[in-house]
Every structure is written in structure tokens, then in C-alpha cells.
Write a protein that binds this DNA or RNA. Structure first.
Lengths: 132, 132
DNA sequence: GTCATTGCAAAACGTTTGCATGAAT
DNA sequence: ATTCATGCAAACGTTTTGCAATGAC
């Protein structure tokens, strides 16, 4: 098994992601990392994001809008993509019941092993509804 | 607003998708349509799949495995992607409660308007768990 | 006749990879 | 000294697009 070596680029990528409250794409993250590391390459950003996902330090959000998004918040929560403004919202389950039901619904498919951190919802957000 | 004209290619794409129980990608669908329309182009398949999604006749499944998948089953159900075998399963909510809780959890974000047909779950399926 | 749809090829997009160089252990 | 990580550029797979020709209405 491969042993990770320290790299300041990887640290910076993780730190940058942790400091954000949005859910940036690799490219958006690349743009902000460049302020600190003007020579960093996009390939390095992708490679390290993949590593960080593998080690469970960050999470990948594939919402189907073309590019993957990333999130350093590893607490149990869902994501909601507004199909109108394309913004991704964090979505905490309102009640323990909601969570429990999700797990129940999942039992038949992957008993005890569902990765419920990755549930994706789609719709139209409050903001967009009110603007109409 | 654009008015759709009849096209046998579009009909065939929809019919082909309706006849399948899996969740094919555009490319997989293209391969099977080619048996009936040897000259159809991949661009046409993509264009029509997009049209059919817009009109609500079929559904797009973006599970983050590289390519979008499509589904002609418009009944309320979720999808589950096994991260090991990469198969997509249909996932009927086990109980009305599970569904209700999902809707409840969604109220704060898109009251009454969440597209709950598109909830995606991720994990490891029973088959893959048993094989270990 | 008008305008949507097609096939084709090229381009666009997000992401991965090969390789020679550099950094960490 | 070994082996992982980097920057760069090229390649990859998926999807979109421009265009002239065809088909639906």
C-alpha cells in the first residue's frame, strides 16, 4: 500500500477547502489556491482532491451539473442542488426521524453499510421560488 | 417557445429506453438504437435525450460515475449506486414514512416543490457484500 | 415555405495520465 | 537512496455545437 508523503500543496488545498462555506469545483479551488501557489497545476489539484477523498478527509459531491464539487465538512448532512440557480445547499436532516427513515429505506440494499453522507436532493430553492 | 416536431429517431430512443430495465448511458442506448437505425448519430441521441428530459418523458440519473444514465420509469422511486460493481438499482421507499420524512426534510429548502424523484443513494450493494 | 431535426465532424469540457524534475523521508 | 509529489502538456471520455442537407407540418 502506498504511503503518503507530506506536501504543502495538499495541505493548502485542504486548508483552502476547509475555510470555504460553498462547495467549490476543482477549478474554482485551483483559482483560489493559485494566489498562494502561483505555479500549482490543475493536475496537482485533481490528484490531491482524489487522495483526500480516498483518505476520507474531504467529500466529493457529484450532483450532475458537469463538474464534481468538494466539501470538507464531514459531518452527517445531505446536499440540495437548486436546478434554477445551480447553487448547492447543505441540508441538515430536520429530525432524527428523517435520518432513521433514510437508513431504513436503505437497509434492503446495503444493510448497515450505506454511505448516507452522500444523499443528493434536487429541486428549486426558496430564493428562486420567491423571485418569481 | 419551440414546438417539437415528430421524429422517428426520438420515438425509437424513447421506446428503446422504455423497454429496458437497466439504466443505460447515452452511449449504451446509442449502441442498441443502431440496430434499428444504423445511420443515427450519437449527437442525435444526446439531443433527443435532452429533449425528452425537458418534456418530462424520461429522467436523467447523474450518479457521478462519469456518464449520465437515463430512465423511462417516471414513478416515484430513488436510485442506489453500488460503488463496487457500479450498478444502479431502483430503490422503492420501503414505507410511506420514509417518503414522508424525505419530504419533511426537504421542506426548508424547496417547500412543496422538491423533485424527490431524483434522490441518489450511494453505498455497497448486497451482492458485493456477500461476495467478500 | 418555414422551421425543427438530422448526420457528421469538430470543438468544448472536466478529468486523467505519462514523463522528466524536484521534494520528502 | 528510495519513492512519492509536482508541473506541464497531451490524451481521454463525455457531451455539445456549427453547419449544410433533410423531413415534418
Amino acid at each position: 500500500m502506498k504511503v503518503l508523503k507530506y506536501s504543502r500543496q495538499r495541505e493548502s488545498i485542504k486548508a483552502s477547502l476547509m475555510s470555504r462555506h460553498d462547495h467549490p469545483t476543482a477549478d474554482a479551488l485551483y483559482a483560489s489556491i493559485r494566489e498562494e501557489f502561483p505555479n500549482i497545476s490543475l493536475g496537482t489539484v485533481y490528484r490531491n482532491l482524489n487522495l483526500l477523498v480516498e483518505t476520507g478527509e474531504i467529500r466529493r459531491i457529484s450532483c450532475g451539473d458537469g463538474a464534481d464539487h468538494f466539501d470538507a465538512n464531514m459531518e452527517e448532512h445531505y446536499h440540495f442542488l437548486c436546478r434554477e440557480c445551480r447553487k448547492i445547499y447543505d441540508m441538515e436532516p430536520e429530525t432524527a426521524d428523517a435520518l432513521k427513515s433514510l437508513d431504513t429505506a436503505a437497509q434492503g440494499y446495503a444493510p448497515g453499510l450505506i454511505d448516507s453522507h452522500s444523499v443528493m436532493f434536487y429541486g428549486r430553492c426558496k430564493n428562486c421560488i420567491e423571485k418569481k
